[in-house]
Nucleic acid binder design. Structure first.
Lengths: 301, 301
DNA sequence: GTTTACCATGCATAAAATTCATGGAGCAAT
DNA sequence: ATTGCTCCATGAATTTTATGCATGGTAAAC
């Protein structure tokens, strides 16, 4: 393939559009002389003139006319493709469940934005998980899961550990309840299935029976929020209540922790692994949310 | 329009095709390091990697995959257009009537070819004239004409002057005939219309009557050739018989010359006036065939 | 463990692009 | 005609860019 001088072609394009070397120079931030030389280079390459120089103005020769649309189309094709892939390096859509979004990501999201102000990062909060990222609605996902799909890269953030918490206001001047006294308070279920409390009680060697008062919530976050408002005792994932414990909104009522078989992962498709936006967010998220320090090279686990 | 570095794009294209910087360098007659730097330039421009460097081999990132066809298509578009207009600067099709072709052009054609060995010049010999070059079968035409069409450039070569000639063999040891004795020989008509001889006789103040023996030919050339073989006396255009008179194949029988109202022109479409091939042939033809020295700037008459 | 095949990179050099200043050609208006 | 104006072309110097060379580093294969 023997191509003409490409930079000269771009200058030709602009000069042909303006019908003027001088104006083309202004557009390209070049002097008129530089434009003239580029056109000369191109004309020498083809061995024929592309412009008819007249005192009144510049005209294209038939060969210039023939060349013009080809160059215009070619460059706009390149421009379109460039624009498409440039956008992918500037945008990032992060998916998280409502609980993770509000308890993990949102509190520290501005920090990430501030560190990468050129990145247009958005948080997509959906329940449910498209396990192959087929919907292409998000680029990277915080996800609790047990199995791994091929084609995806998984970074384990932490295991899920549930401990009982409640607002200190729930007990007023009474002493905090022992495990055996939990049933005297409303028990808040972080999901509609009764898995957490029953497992936790089993772990503690207790049988609460069926007579306990209980509320079920859609998400872990809602149960924690309800607990912090004094509605009862909930099982909360440890990493989601660090702030509440620190500022006294919640108190932890037992050291017995329900360790589930699943863990929280940061997941993204393998083909996005080279995107700087994905790399930046991954490294930041691993440092922020992992319970183990990330490997030095920040590689996949 | 903000385009990526174009030369780097070409290097990218080759490297992507070869899946190797080293091989791309060989193809482009560059070192591997130069290729590496071009790719770096491009990746820096986009802010993302285009290749995944592995010890085993080079792979494109999804962004590289997206970029590749766009670059390939764009460059092949430019290449096609370049090829098309390059060919037009290397090829030239000259049209001439059979007479002009054989009497003017062919004898000196190799001289022109030798001067411009890179030019693929062909001679198209057709009778009839497409007055607007609409058929696009030829680029430049030798043509006898009286009127001028707009959009064409006319260079007057010479007026047409007809003089009577014959082979010296026709008369053997007899003296050459006077005008009055022409009718004793077969008169060769250079066209099927009886315009030339009747006009010439009228010019000479004679009336040949109808009883003369005559042959009509399709072209001026055929009549001259016939005359040179001793078939009779013909009227020949002066510029076409210079060689025959010089080497004695023909002798001129009178100084009375029929000057027609039309002249020979070299004609080409205005839009081809910038083609180097047209310019080269025009300048050569004017110097070779014009009865007046060409103007210094070789401008249209 | 050693070799091998690649790509990356610091440094020197070659090449190209660009500017600046100036010249010249064609039009338009006086 | 003459003058002025607007463009494009061009010589020479300079800056920028590309390239080569030699070397280093890494990961796979033997």
């Amino acid at each position: 393939m023997k191509l003409p001088p490409l930079n000269a072609l771009r200058v030709f394009l602009v000069a042909a559009e303006h019908h003027s070397f001088t104006k083309a120079g202004e557009t390209l931030h070049l002097t008129q002389g530089a434009v003239s030389r580029h056109i000369q280079t191109l004309e020498a390459h083809y061995g024929l003139p592309l412009f008819v120089r007249q005192a009144r103005g510049l005209t294209l020769t038939p060969e210039g006319v023939a060349l013009f649309p080809a160059v215009r189309d070619a460059f706009s094709r390149i421009e379109a493709a460039s624009e498409a892939i440039s956008r992918r390096s500037r945008e990032l859509r992060v998916k998280a469940s409502p609980s993770i979004a509000s308890r993990w990501v949102l509190p520290r999201f501005t920090q990430f934005r501030n560190r990468y102000p050129d990145l247009m990062v958005s948080l997509v909060t959906v329940t449910g998980f498209d396990p192959n990222f087929k919907s292409r609605e998000y680029d990277i996902s915080f996800q609790a899961c047990e199995t791994q799909e091929p084609g995806l890269i998984y970074h384990r953030l932490r295991g899920a550990r549930f401990v009982p918490v409640a607002s200190p206001d729930l007990f007023k001047d009474k002493p905090r309840p022992t495990m055996a006294q939990f049933m005297e308070y409303p028990l808040l279920h972080p999901s509609h299935e009764d898995q957490f409390w029953s497992q936790w009680f089993a772990l503690s060697g207790m049988n609460p029976g069926n007579s306990i008062e209980a509320y079920a919530f859609d998400t872990l976050d809602l149960a924690i929020t309800a607990a912090s408002r004094g509605m009862g005792i909930t099982l909360a994932e440890e990493s989601m209540i660090a702030d509440d414990l620190a500022n006294g909104t919640l108190v932890q009522l037992s050291d017995v922790a329900l360790v589930t078989s699943w863990a929280y992962y940061l997941i993204y498709p393998q083909e996005l692994a080279t995107l700087p936006s994905v790399i930046a967010f991954r490294d930041w998220a691993l440092a922020e949310f992992s319970d183990t320090p990330p490997a030095p090279a920040s590689r996949a686990q």
